[in-house]
């Protein structure tokens, strides 16, 4: 028998693999949150007027984008104990994936913020908003429109990259798949099931991402003459100006 359908269907609802998939999802979400915190901080720091604030953030982005995340994970889990820093599997995976992701998100967030016209910032300052309020109430909501699509893609990527945590013995989907294969020998069936789980996660996320993008650009969708709207949208929606 080349392909064992009954084994395939058996593993398709295996609680062992399902739990692994749930761990993968949780790990990705946790790493994304850490990444967002690091990414936001680094993005703000890189836009500072002061060099001593800018430089550390630039080094961070350069370092973590310039080296493989797999190497970073192994250094954190296997290498750091040599310096007396002992992190558990979960902590290592979360920090490794999260901090690495933050370096990429920093660039996404920074470019989104820089795409908001300077006048928006000045107008907010002129009505007496502090820097923090200006960012929160005026700049970020507009930047989100630009940031969300690449951010969603980053999360899609992260769900797949999370499989690298298997090399530091994190029992997520891939690790569990490998463990199962070692005792059950249905290599192709089990790995196809794992692949389908990943596909399921990324597909669901794809739907959510579409919704998020629509929500973030709701004011643009209603404004035909906004500069950021596509020509097609501009033609499709009648002008309301009288």
């Amino acid at each position: 028998m080349i392909w064992d359908w009954s084994a395939f269907f058996h593993y398709l609802h295996s609680p062992y693999l399902l739990t692994g998939a749930a761990v993968s999802l949780g790990l990705s979400m946790g790493a994304m949150l850490i990444g967002l915190v690091f990414g936001c901080c680094a993005a703000m720091m890189r836009m500072s007027e002061r060099r001593w604030i800018r430089t550390p953030a630039s080094i961070y982005v350069w370092l973590f984008r310039g080296t493989p995340v797999l190497v970073q994970l192994i250094i954190i889990y296997t290498g750091l104990p040599q310096l007396g820093i002992k992190l558990g599997v979960l902590a290592s995976a979360l920090i490794g994936l999260g901090v690495n992701e933050g370096a990429y998100l920093a660039e996404i967030i920074r470019s989104g913020i820089m795409a908001v016209p300077k006048g928006q910032f000045e107008a907010a300052r002129a009505i007496g908003m502090t820097w923090g309020k200006t960012m929160r109430i005026v700049v970020m909501p507009q930047a989100m429109r630009i940031i969300i699509p690449p951010l969603g893609n980053a999360f899609n990527g992260l769900m797949k990259t999370s499989s690298l945590a298997s090399v530091i013995s994190m029992e997520e989907l891939l690790r569990r798949t490998e463990l199962l294969v070692q005792v059950q020998f249905k290599v192709l069936e089990i790995f196809i099931v794992a692949a389908l789980y990943y596909l399921f996660l990324t597909t669901i996320w794809g739907f959510i991402q579409t919704r998020l993008e629509a929500y973030a650009s709701r004011s643009v969708a209603q404004s035909p003459s906004a500069r950021t709207s596509t020509p097609v949208a501009a033609v499709a929606i009648p002008s309301d100006a009288s």
Partner: peptide
Amino acid sequence: DAGLSRQRQQIGMVFQQFNLFSHM
């Protein structure tokens, strides 16, 4: 920054490019 922002509350400003908050 907070103190300067408080001072600016007393001063209205109108810009050449309007600068209305485009998401509101």
